[in-house]
């Protein structure tokens, strides 16, 4: 699905991503783990078109997508969420979701004045869809609240909801679970599994919570210092000496063994 080849992203002398090679299989839920500063988010940003790579290629289903702007990638079905939840703070949660599908007929100036009925029909369908998504995420009571005022965890759900408004092909989730309580985390995990099963979304998940990773992800890729350190099932990764040294630490190793 996505192939990353020899990807470099340098900020001045700092090599945030330093020759990363990886492949994400269609229909998988791939976990991306690694210590802070390993280059996971930078890698996301480069793939999602927010940053231009210094060198290297990214392909999606065989086609080169390196350096395409985010809104074009969006129309190709590549979506992402943010580590720190983003939202249109002055709009309600429902409006936030309704913003998502691109190329709505109301976006053309001509239709704004002369295609009112078409827009109204489209908006009605979107509204129904947004309500459905809110219900799926168990935050239907927040539909009319301003997105800037809901809690951090609820914003994370909203981020996930955004990806459900269109037929995404691949979704990059940047720490969806961070700062979210257990119950909400389970809701998110359920949603991811359902989207993967029912709608064949491919997911790439950055996460530090190993239980969450273990429940969802196969395979798991571990990054460190801008490179891919190891790839395999979570059990394999946990047993990998390099990974333990760079990320998990011996404490966890002992815990795994007991």
């Amino acid at each position: 699905m996505i192939k990353v080849k020899d990807l470099h992203k340098h900020f001045g002398g700092f090599h945030a991503v330093d020759g990363a090679n990886l492949e994400i299989a269609e229909g998988s839920i791939t976990g991306l783990i690694g210590p802070n500063g390993a280059g996971k988010t930078t890698l996301f940003n480069v793939i999602a078109g927010v940053l231009e790579p210094t060198a290297g290629r990214v392909t999606m289903a065989g086609k080169d997508i390196t350096g395409l702007p985010p809104h074009e990638l969006f129309h190709k079905g590549l979506l992402r969420t943010f580590q720190i939840a983003h939202e249109f703070s002055s709009m309600t949660c429902r409006e936030n979701l309704m913003m998502v599908p691109g190329n709505q007929s109301g976006e053309r100036l001509w239709n704004t004045w002369f295609g009112r009925r078409r827009i109204a029909n489209e908006e009605r369908a979107l509204r129904a869809k947004a309500d459905e998504v809110l219900e799926f995420l168990t935050i239907e009571h927040l539909a009319d609240h301003r997105a800037g005022q809901v809690s951090g965890g609820q914003k994370k759900l909203l981020e996930l909801g955004r990806t459900m408004m269109v037929d995404a092909r691949i979704v990059f989730l940047d720490e969806v679970g961070a700062g979210v309580n257990r119950t909400l985390l389970n809701t998110i995990a359920d949603a991811i599994i359902r989207l993967n099963k029912e709608r064949q979304y491919t997911f790439v998940v950055i996460e530090h919570d190993m239980d969450f990773i273990g429940r969802l992800c196969d395979p798991v890729i571990c990054m460190a210092e801008g490179r891919v350190l190891a790839e395999g099932t979570l059990a394999e990764i946990k047993a990998n000496e390099q990974v333990i040294e760079a990320y998990l630490g011996t404490g966890l190793k002992n815990k795994v063994n007991t």
């Binding site: 985010p70 969006f74 983003h86």
Partner: peptide
């Protein structure tokens, strides 16, 4: 308004800048 509110998110929501 979305673009003015949060440019990054607007771009990632498929809004053509």
């Amino acid at each position: 308004r979305a673009y003015s509110d949060n440019e990054d998110l607007a771009l990632l929501s498929g809004i053509n800048p």
